[in-house]
C-alpha cells in the first residue's frame, strides 16, 4: 500500500490513502467463445504502473484474448477488469499493421485524434510528431502499400502513441518481421516506453523478445489459459546489443524458457 498523486482524488480522502500502484487488475477472468472454446480458465493479474509485462505462452493459450478483454473489445465470461482512476487512455497495436490502405501514413497516425474530434491542424502536428518519433519523418504522405512491413508497423505504433496513451497493449506486433527489423523496433519501443512513462502489456511467442523487453514475464499454460509462472526480471534501463550477450540476459531467458516448458509439460 502506498500513496499516489493526489490530484486525481481531490476531495476523496478515504481513497487517497489506500490506493496501491497497480494500473489495472484482472480478477477471476474466464472466457469461453460462442463456438465452445474455453480460451481462458481463470486469470488473475495485477499490472503495476510503469511495468513492461510480457504475456508468453503457446498458441491458443488466450494471450490475445486477455489483451482484448483488457482493451474492452471482448467481454469476459466471469471476473472483471479494474482500472486505476482515472482510467488510463489505451493504445492498441495488432500483429498486422492494420492500416487504412486508402489513407496516408499521416492520416493513419491521426486516426485516434480525428475520432476524438481534435482540430485538424493540431492533430496533424501530433501525428507528424508521432511519425517522427518512430523514425518515419518524411514519410507522412506515403501510402501503406509504398512502405515496407517494418515501416507499416512503425506507422501502427505511431498511431498508438499519437493519442498519448498511458497503457499500451501490443498483440505480437513484431512476429511477422525479420530479426533485425524486430530488434530495431524492440529498441525503439523501449525508448518510447521510457520517454512517455508507458505501461506496456506485450503478447509474444518469443522467449528472447520477452526477456529483452520486459521487467516482468507472465507465462501462461496451454488452453484454457491460466498463469503458470510470474517472473520478475531486472534488466538495465538502457539496453543494447551487449545486453543480449550478457550473463543476466541468458540467465533470464533460461528462466523464461524453463517456465514455458514446464507450463507445457504440466498441461
Amino acid at each position: 500500500m502506498t500513496t499516489r498523486d493526489g490530484d486525481a482524488f481531490a476531495g476523496h480522502d478515504s481513497v487517497f490513502y489506500c490506493v496501491n500502484m497497480s494500473l489495472l487488475t484482472l480478477s477471476g477472468i474466464s472466457k469461453k467463445f460462442d463456438n465452445g472454446t474455453q480460451a481462458i480458465a481463470r486469470l488473475d493479474l495485477d499490472v503495476a504502473d510503469g511495468e513492461f509485462l510480457s504475456l508468453v505462452g503457446p498458441s491458443g493459450c488466450g494471450k490475445s484474448t486477455a489483451l482484448r478483454i483488457i482493451a474492452g473489445l471482448l467481454t469476459p465470461e466471469t471476473g472483471m477488469v479494474t482500472f486505476a482512476e482515472p482510467k488510463p487512455p489505451i493504445g492498441f497495436v495488432f500483429q498486422e499493421p492494420t492500416l487504412m490502405p486508402w489513407a496516408t501514413a499521416l492520416s493513419n497516425a491521426r486516426l485516434p485524434l480525428d475520432l476524438n474530434g481534435h482540430h485538424r491542424g493540431e492533430a496533424n502536428d501530433r501525428a507528424a510528431r508521432a511519425l517522427a518519433r518512430v523514425g518515419l519523418a518524411g514519410f507522412e504522405k506515403a501510402y501503406p502499400r509504398e512502405l515496407s512491413g517494418g515501416m507499416k508497423m512503425r506507422v501502427s505504433i505511431a498511431r498508438a502513441i499519437a493519442a498519448e496513451p498511458k497503457l499500451l497493449l501490443m498483440d505480437e506486433p513484431f512476429a511477422a518481421l525479420d530479426e533485425l527489423t524486430r530488434q530495431a523496433l524492440n529498441d525503439d519501443l523501449l525508448k518510447l516506453k521510457r520517454e512517455d512513462a508507458l505501461t506496456v502489456i506485450f503478447v509474444t511467442h518469443s522467449v528472447y523478445e520477452s526477456t529483452y523487453l520486459s521487467s516482468r514475464v507472465v507465462v501462461m499454460t496451454p488452453r484454457p489459459g491460466r498463469v503458470a509462472a510470474d517472473l520478475a526480471l531486472n534488466p538495465p534501463a538502457e539496453r543494447d546489443e551487449s545486453y543480449r550477450l550478457s550473463p543476466q540476459f541468458t540467465g533470464d531467458a533460461g528462466r523464461v524458457s524453463v517456465a514455458l516448458k514446464s507450463a507445457m509439460a504440466a498441461a
Binding site: A71, L73, F92, T98, L111, P112, N116
Partner: peptide
C-alpha cells in the same frame, strides 16, 4: 481489427 480499434478510440 480496424473496426475494433475504432471502437477502442470511442
Amino acid at each position: 481489427n480496424l473496426t475494433d480499434l475504432m471502437k477502442l478510440y470511442g
